[in-house]
C-alpha cells in the first residue's frame, strides 16, 4: 500500500521509500525510516496535499510525494 492511499484517520507503518536522490533525503529527514508509524490526519479542501502525523509533527505532503512511500496498514 502507498502512503497516498492511506485513508484519513488510519495509521500505517513505513515499509520502504521508493524514490531516490534529494526527494528520498527529504523524506528521511522527516523521520520516515522503516518501522515509523504514520497517520493521515486530513485532506486539503482541494484534495491534494494530505496532512500526516509524523513523529508528533503535522506535515503536509503532496500526493505524488506520498506515493513514494510504501506502508503497511496498522490495525
Amino acid at each position: 500500500m502507498l502512503l497516498s492511499q492511506l485513508p484519513v484517520g488510519k495509521t500505517g507503518e513505513v515499509v520502504a521509500i521508493t524514490c531516490s536522490g534529494l526527494m528520498r533525503r527529504r523524506l528521511l529527514d522527516l523521520g520516515l525510516v522503516p518501522g515509523t508509524k504514520i497517520q493521515t490526519l486530513r485532506q486539503s479542501p482541494g484534495g491534494d496535499p494530505l496532512a500526516f502525523n509524523i513523529r508528533g509533527a503535522v506535515i503536509a505532503l503532496r500526493l505524488d510525494t506520498a506515493s513514494q512511500v510504501k506502508i503497511r496498514l496498522v490495525k
Binding site: 534529494l22 505532503l61 503532496r62 510525494t65
Partner: peptide, 11 residues
Amino acid sequence: IPSHFALELPP
C-alpha cells in the same frame, strides 16, 4: 515538473 515539498502545520 513541480518538485516535492513538505510543509509543516505547526501547532
